[in-house]
Amino acid sequence: MSKFEFPPSILSRPIWGTLEPRPGKHHLMIADAEGAEAILDVATAEIMAQCHIIFIAKGTGFSEKLSQLNPAQFYEGPSYEAALPRIHRVLLDGHMGLQVYLAGTEGLMGQAMAEAMRAGIPHTAIQTEHRGSTARRMQCVHCKGITEDVETDPFVCKHCGLNLFVRDHYSRRIAAYQGVCVDAEDHGNIPPAKGIYQ
């Protein structure tokens, strides 16, 4: 089972939901890796007839199953960055009645949500469902660089090399959690890295 129960946290931390079919003129589904399972769970023939699926497989084997849903459009991208111009283009065409569904990792959902918000869709109108990896997309508060897929706390910022601890404080605009220098008051004293939810 790829569902993870996130522990209760502070109010800026996003709470992910469970996808449900909603009436709409068009349906945009963006997912990565195990996020495919959430799409498979929510798909109906009616939705698929008006649906554009954008999927980043990340080495998983879900592509075939998704394409067998017969969505109006199916795209598999090699990475989120590669899929981004397409996402922009699709959102540009979005009209009233477009339903947006995001599924998979927090990094994927957060970034796609930020794009949809920039296109004028309120974040409360976007459905989400977390599946798969619990790794986080982290912003270093010092150098502002983003480190993707962070699984441990603390971790090393891949841009400036500082050792950062993982906060639950989250920015929807940046689509990232905040990382803060862990040894600022005692240089070199880096606690051993643990899994974020350990």
Binding site: V141, H142, L162, Q178, V180, C181, A184, E185, H187
Partner: peptide, 9 residues
């Protein structure tokens, strides 16, 4: 927080 790694000490 931006400069915390400099002033924290």
């Amino acid at each position: 927080p931006e400069n915390y790694h400099k002033w924290g000490i």
